[in-house]
Amino acid sequence: MKIVIPVDKDNMETDVSSNFGRAPYFLLYDLDTKESEFINNSAASSPGGAGIKAAQIIVDSEVNALLTPRCGEKAADVLKASDIKIYKTSGTSAKENIALFTKGELSLLDEIHPGFHGQVGN
């Protein structure tokens, strides 16, 4: 099973990014082989629709689940169309979240926000 997490840095000590669509990197992690890969999020600098493009990148990377602190509604629409499950992260580090997910301790993200639309989120 492969999962993906939006992250701030391209190493395993990274924190989870607070923003999905404009996260600098995505960490792809294979739970079976324990292999990790970092991909640049080319959507981060989009003038608009970053969440849609980021979700397209996630779908194209053929993962089963996304672990994110939050997700906008358009990105969620894209992910829904692809059967990728969205889980809510807990705490700050990527490693910690991989461990929690493996133990089945992360719950599905049920709160989808309407998006930031060019405004800075915090």
């Binding site: 003038p47 608009g48 970053a50 849609i52 397209q56 779908v59 894209v78 169309a81 059967d83």
Partner: peptide, 9 residues
């Protein structure tokens, strides 16, 4: 440029 399109499945 505005990412108004996505191609899924």
């Amino acid at each position: 440029k505005f990412n108004a399109l996505a191609y899924i499945k």
